[in-house]
Amino acid sequence: MSHIAVLGPGAMGKRMAANLLKAGHQVTVWNRTAKAAEPLLAMGATQAATPGNAAAGADFVLAMVRDDAASAKVWLDAETGAFAGMRPDAIAMDSSTLSVDWIKKLGAEAAIRGVTLLETPVSGSLPQADAAQLIFLVGGSADACSQAEPVLLAMGSAVNHTGEIGTGALTKLATNALLGVQVTAIAELIGLLRRNGADAQKIMGIIAGTAVWSPYAQRAIGALLSGEAPVMFPVELVEKDFGYALDAAGSPDAAPTIAAARSVFRRGMDEGLGDANLTSVVKLFRT
């Protein structure tokens, strides 16, 4: 079994770390808030004071943090960063949802330091993380991906090598953009139906029997009709990912549908829905 450092065991990361422990790996964790790691310590993890301390001696170092800025701090901080603590033959893996420009820069920074970096973003939310059913979208060296695959499969059901560094971020951002666009479209349609006095639940059920319906829509329609759901993917993070996708597109004019959907999520944040589940944007279209 491997020694693995997990940096940022928040809602997703703590579930991923738990599955690594269940698989028998030695796990060292670091989190900005030390108390957040206590359930993992009870399972047998050890805690480090800094990302660099956590990375020392590890075979794999996995980060799962909020955004580009947090990723930069975790890996590159001159005093506490993980790269400074890694041994030369270890593999760095970042499962955060990051911008394409940033992950490419991070890959270049890793190469300067003689570190192998894989981008390992995931498709899936809290239930998939709990069940070790995440789908990994891996960018970087194919050889490194093969080395990391047994570790990733302790947390997921599939490991997909997308290509060089940057392609994993592109795949993840495209996936999340499609997700957010679907939510926006269905929310608007529910508002349209109700505004015209129609039975939205009945009509959406009819649409669900057609070829245009998606597996995600089937899972989310109850939350969209009710406007209530546990927080799996907050509005503010969807908006952040739309922004990264638009950066990759080059301009809003190059991806007008994504830009329009982002504006809906920005409006949701302005109306106090930032911490709510992404399906809560349906509330913006109530009559």
Rank of each mutant, 00 (worst) to 15 (best):
L20Y: 03
I4E: 01
L62H: 02
A92G: 12
V212M: 15
Q182Y: 11
T120Q: 06
L117I: 12
L152I: 12
A48C: 08
V115F: 07
A78D: 08
L134N: 08
A248Y: 06
F83V: 01
P51R: 05
P121G: 06
A154E: 11
D68G: 03
C145R: 12
A82G: 10
L76K: 02
A72H: 04
R194M: 13
A63M: 02
I112Y: 03
D89E: 09
A144G: 08
L98F: 00
N277T: 05
V115K: 05
P215F: 11
L225Y: 01
D253N: 06
G10N: 08
V264Y: 00
L41T: 05
E239D: 14
T184Y: 03
I258N: 02
I186N: 02
A58P: 02
F60L: 13
A245C: 06
L278N: 05
I203H: 11
F136Q: 09
A48P: 02
S123A: 10
A148T: 09
L7W: 00
G205V: 08
A58S: 04
A158N: 09
I186M: 10
G197T: 04
A144E: 00
A69K: 08
A90T: 11
A229W: 09
S96Y: 08
N31V: 04
T210S: 14
V122W: 04
D89I: 08
A217N: 14
K240V: 10
S226D: 13
I91P: 01
T50D: 00
A220I: 07
E236P: 10
